[in-house]
Amino acid sequence: MSHLERTSNSPQNSSRMREQVGGGTVQQYPTARTETVAFRIDGCSKVYWIKKNLILSEPGTLCEIFATLSVEGEGTSEEQAIKLNSVIPEDFEALVHFYNDFETRGIPVGVPPFQYWDRLKRASRCYRITSVEERAYGELFNILIEQNPVMAVVIAEQNPGADQEWLYAAYRKLCLRARPLSDNEAAKLHGVTVNRIIRARQKIRHWNSLSIARRGMISRGSIIREVFRIQGRAPTEHKSR
């Protein structure tokens, strides 16, 4: 089924109040707007407005809509809002917020960061907005590294295209923390990964026992990269780390 369908031109109150996504505040929108595009999710009455220049700057399904519109004025008013299918309203709200308000207002108040980025990832994938999906995936992975580094490793190792620096950050978290892997954590990881974590932690303990002079150019980061065979060196990595 297509992502978009045209809505009927049934008359509606031109002064209708709409709740703006993200902050819970209410603004009054005029019936017709030229700098934004109106969308409505099939089965929902709420109208979402997205800045036209932002849509056009991001290749994907929403951008392609403009190449397929055949009715003059479509998307420029509540009465002619573009109808979307195959998307969860909360996911689309995250996308609208990201486009319109993220830079100035950040994540919506009351929405957990992981939930916000997860919704944004699904919506951007639904509409093939690659740059937004990559941003959401990166933010989700960074949260996982802090909250559940074992799961971050599991997800990254199952994804052949995962950024090596994300993997490095997850391995580093597990290798430098005070407590070793628990039995439950080890059971979730590949045997090779568990063995490398143990070996890296042993090397790092030995590194910690050396004087600064004896450490030379070796850093904890370089030890982790060598043990896990991660190429390159992070630009912010220093030998004392």
Rank of each mutant, 00 (worst) to 15 (best):
T76M: 10
S70Q: 11
T61C: 07
Q115K: 10
I129D: 04
T104W: 06
K83F: 05
P89L: 03
R128A: 11
W117G: 00
C63A: 14
E134T: 15
Q80N: 14
V71K: 11
W117A: 00
C63L: 08
F114H: 11
P113L: 04
L69I: 13
L95H: 05
E78A: 05
V132A: 09
L120S: 06
E90W: 00
L62Q: 02
S86W: 13
N100D: 11
E103H: 06
W117C: 02
G138A: 11
E79R: 15
S124V: 10
K121T: 12
R125Q: 13
A94L: 08
D101H: 14
I107F: 04
Q80W: 08
T68E: 14
S70R: 14
T104Q: 06
L120R: 01
G138L: 05
E72L: 09
I82D: 06
E93W: 00
N100E: 11
A123H: 00
S77P: 02
K121E: 14
F102A: 06
E93H: 01
Y137V: 13
S77T: 15
A136S: 15
L84K: 00
E79Y: 06
V71E: 08
A81V: 01
L69N: 08
E78T: 09
R122I: 01
G73S: 07
E133Q: 10
E78R: 03
Y116K: 01
R125L: 11
D118M: 15
E93P: 00
E72D: 14
A123Y: 00
F66H: 05
E79M: 05
N85D: 10
A67D: 12
V132K: 06
T76I: 12
L62A: 00
G73I: 09
T104L: 11
D118A: 12
T130P: 03
V132R: 09
H97E: 03
F66I: 08
E79S: 04
Y127K: 01
I82M: 05
P112I: 09
L62D: 02
A67S: 15
L84P: 01
R105C: 07
L95R: 03
L120Y: 04
P89S: 05
F92V: 01
L120D: 12
D118P: 01
G138V: 10
V71W: 13
W117V: 00
I82V: 13
E78K: 02
Y116C: 00
N100V: 08
A94N: 07
G110C: 03
N85C: 07
